[in-house]
């Protein structure tokens, strides 16, 4: 899977561990929630980077206290229609203050990248057809946004009244 990170196609340094694989001492690995729950004591304070994969139904609020253990959280879209991870992303960014890499994995379609970026994803495992140019075009497709969200972009509400304040000052 090609990886888009901050708008660039980059090499993926992370290894997703399968169920039967043991966690190596070296290297950046992504584990699932079941493994974290079982091996938590051993993995806590792992020197090499640790990432966590959450599936729909596994809300990040369940691991809120452990969040500092992870450099990366991957949120799964088993099907593009399953939109639970959009809520998880905002909770991670806005409520739990997660600042590490937030990665979208699974069925990640080009036309969804804009919404994903807005809720706080900064890395995307995309299909072979999605280019850096496509990504840039998606990010630019709407000139304004109505709702406050994790991306911190100025909303239409703010811009309207920001603009009005400037007018008043002149």
């Amino acid at each position: 899977m090609p990886l888009l990170k901050d708008g660039r196609l980059v090499e993926d340094k992370w290894q997703r561990l399968e169920e039967h694989e043991v966690v190596p001492t070296e290297g950046a690995v992504i584990i699932d929630l079941e493994r974290w729950q079982v091996e938590r004591e051993n993995l806590k304070g792992r020197a090499a980077p640790l990432g966590l994969l959450l599936m729909p139904g596994q809300s990040p609020e369940e691991i809120a206290d452990d969040l500092s253990q992870f450099d990366l959280i991957a949120l799964a879209f088993p099907a593009f229609k399953d939109g639970r991870a959009y809520s998880y992303a905002r909770i991670l960014r806005e409520r739990l203050g997660f600042t590490g890499e937030l990665r979208a994995v699974g069925e990640v379609l080009q036309d969804q990248l804009f919404f994903m970026a807005r809720v706080g994803f900064d890395a995307f495992e995309v299909n072979e057809r999605t280019s850096e140019g496509d990504f840039a075009a998606e990010m630019a497709k709407f000139p304004a946004v109505y709702q406050p969200s994790s991306c911190g972009e100025n909303t239409v509400f703010a811009r309207r009244h920001g603009a009005r304040l400037v007018e008043a000052a002149e």
Partner: peptide
């Protein structure tokens, strides 16, 4: 209407 238009979190309910 404005709040719900292209809502990034609630477009795949």
């Amino acid at each position: 209407r404005q709040w719900s238009t292209f809502h990034p979190e609630f477009s795949f309910l």
